[in-house]
Simulated assay, not measured.
Amino acid sequence: MSNPSADTTAVSRPLRRRPPLAEAVVQSLATAIVLGEHPPGTALPSAGVLCDRYEVSRTVIREATTTLAEKGLVATRQGWGTVVLDQDQWSLLDPLVLDALFQREDRLVFLDNLIEIRTTLECAMAARAAGRIDDAQAAALAAKLEELAALRDDATAYARADIEFHELIHRASQDAFGRAIVSNIQGKALRSPQYNGDPTREDIELTHRAHARVAAALLARDADAAADAMREHITSSWARRRPADAGDA
């Protein structure tokens, strides 16, 4: 009875190694598709070619193309193979797709759109948070603002605490969908130098004043003021760090 068990173990080990291989192929192909290396309407290289390119089995390639199809990037068409789909069919909020979008030459178009989405969602969440924030959350927000004040000479630490400041507001709003969407799109955007910019001490000071206005409105439980302060904070911050000569092509 020991031999069948040994055979089962031998078969299962390669299976456990396949997902990481497939994920690596998916990431590579998804990035190539989004960056336009495989234009919409064209077919991906054959399975055999992809096997040779990535040095993986046909099973891994099948797993990878299935995942790409789930992301709306490709579809299998009889007689054509695996065909790249138009951008309007892509799952744009998928982390891999977003990551690739922010690598494109026209990434500022998507970053501008992200700011619009963030503004809409975070203003609504700030207003909701003003009406729902409890004493413990209010104390945590006030403490985070004090922490931010002490970090104004450390851009990296301030940026990290900045995200935590917004997360406290998101939680207080109890808006699960808004929080998930903002976290997803911003998490990828943070990797883009255009989104982060290179803040000066003056930039951080302006940002901190905006944070203080947002916090004051929330602690006063003033929904309209919280939404207005959040809108001014997000839009003015982006206006300062968006490249002035950036084109949209």
Rank of each mutant, 00 (worst) to 15 (best):
V109K: 08
L93T: 12
V34S: 04
R152P: 00
T31W: 03
R13H: 10
A69C: 04
P40G: 10
R18Y: 14
R171P: 00
L15R: 15
R160I: 08
G131N: 03
V49Q: 08
R18M: 15
L68W: 04
Q78W: 09
S183V: 02
L108Q: 13
Y195H: 15
A142I: 01
C123Q: 14
A216R: 07
D88W: 06
A229W: 11
P243H: 07
L206T: 12
I117R: 03
L218R: 04
D222S: 07
V84E: 05
S91H: 15
G79S: 11
V74H: 04
V74E: 02
A216L: 05
A142F: 01
L21F: 11
R53A: 02
E55F: 06
I33T: 05
R201F: 05
L190Y: 11
G79C: 09
E105W: 06
R191I: 00
S5K: 14
A32Q: 11
L168Q: 01
L121R: 03
R13K: 14
Q186C: 09
A172V: 05
R201H: 10
D203I: 13
T156S: 11
E70R: 15
A249W: 14
A140R: 06
V25D: 02
V83F: 01
A239L: 15
Q78H: 09
D52W: 04
D245I: 08
V182H: 07
T207D: 14
D222E: 07
Q103E: 13
S183P: 00
R209N: 14
P20R: 12
E147A: 06
D162V: 02
S173A: 11
D245R: 10
T8S: 13
R128D: 07
F102G: 01
A43W: 04
A32T: 06
A161W: 00
L121K: 02
I181H: 02
F102D: 00
L151A: 07
L98D: 04
R171S: 06
L151R: 06
G81A: 00
L15A: 15
V109F: 11
I181P: 04
A212I: 08
D248S: 13
P20H: 09
V25R: 00
D7M: 13
G81N: 01
S12I: 14
A150E: 12
K188G: 01
W90N: 11
S173Y: 01
A229P: 08
L50I: 06
L68P: 02
E122T: 08
D134F: 02
T67D: 09
D203C: 13
S91A: 15
R62T: 14
E147R: 06
G187A: 02
I61K: 03
R62S: 14
R231D: 09
E122M: 13
A215H: 13
V84P: 03
L85R: 15
G131V: 00
L92D: 05
N113I: 05
N184M: 15
G48K: 02
A210H: 15
A6V: 12
V182D: 10
L108D: 07
I185N: 01
E23W: 10
A127F: 01
R160G: 05
L93G: 04
V25W: 00
V97S: 07
G81V: 01
R209S: 13
